[in-house]
């Protein structure tokens, strides 16, 4: 990784004075959380776990086990039916609505289906979180270009998402997720659309980001990838969570 790119991704939990107090507290904590859609049985049941700052976890389980639902609870796209969720020390159930966008800006999300904005260029897609955070284009355009070069999209700055391959879209989504230097990085099946070689490159990228300080949680059913990483696993099965130590 180039020195510039390293500076761009210079995660430093606790570097911000505001965040010093929560440096030792879990980034994320679930206590007896349940999630139910309508009157159906609970999709997630009695989920309790915590992610320490700078930790790296895989979230595994068969299709339909509730991995995506759990991630949605974390990035506040869903509300739990019961239980307690704290994010960066803030109880999400009692957090005022005006605080939620601030919390979301501290999370980077790589969606399974990418969710790129097709009407924007690749460069604009990556710059999106910085723009929403109110940064001036002159302050970040160089950083965005550096980051895109780092993920191998240096020649695709003005490309529209629909013209990119699956792997390129994946890397674009990852660049967008990390460009604002999030404290928590979530990825939903980030290797589901790419070949084995690219899967390993993406895994290396996440490990690198984790080394730089980000707390990482990756939902994946790619057992080979999980095994290669040697990272601890949170396994979901029929809506219940089972923690497995580092392999």
């Amino acid at each position: 990784m180039s020195r510039n790119a390293r500076q761009i991704l210079d995660f430093a939990p606790g570097a911000n004075a505001e965040r010093t107090q929560e440096a030792d507290a879990p980034v994320l904590r679930f206590v007896d959380v349940g999630l139910r859609y309508g009157r159906a049985p609970e999709t997630l049941c009695d989920i309790s776990f915590a992610l320490e700052p700078g930790s790296f976890h895989f979230l595994t389980g068969p299709s339909g086990a509730g991995k995506s639902s759990l991630l949605k609870l974390i990035y506040m796209d869903e509300r739990p039916s019961r239980g307690l969720i704290t994010l960066f020390g803030q109880d999400l159930a009692s957090a005022p609505a005006r605080v939620l966008p601030q919390l979301r800006r501290r999370i980077g999300v790589v969606f399974q289906e990418f969710r790129l904005l097709d009407h924007l260029s690749a460069f604009d897609n990556v710059a999106l979180p910085l723009r929403i955070a109110g940064r001036k284009p002159a302050d970040y355009r160089q950083d965005v270009a550096e980051l895109m070069a780092w993920v191998g999209l240096g020649r695709k700055l003005h490309a529209m998402p629909e013209t990119l391959s699956g792997g390129e879209k994946q890397r674009l989504a990852i660049a967008r997720a990390v460009v604002a230097r999030p404290d928590l990085l979530l990825a939903d099946e980030p290797t589901g659309n790419v070949d084995h070689e690219l899967s390993l490159r993406i895994l290396k990228l996440f490990v690198e980001l984790n080394r730089l300080g980000a707390t990482v949680l990756i939902a994946s059913h790619d057992q080979d990838l999980v095994a290669r990483s040697g990272m601890p696993v949170l396994r979901l099965d029929k809506g219940r969570l089972h923690a497995e130590p580092r392999r």
Partner: peptide, 16 residues
């Protein structure tokens, strides 16, 4: 709504 969801999740406020 898909764009709005992405903007929301990325931290955009309603007023934005």
């Amino acid at each position: 709504h898909e764009i709005v969801e992405v903007l929301h999740i990325t931290g955009a406020e309603d007023r934005f």
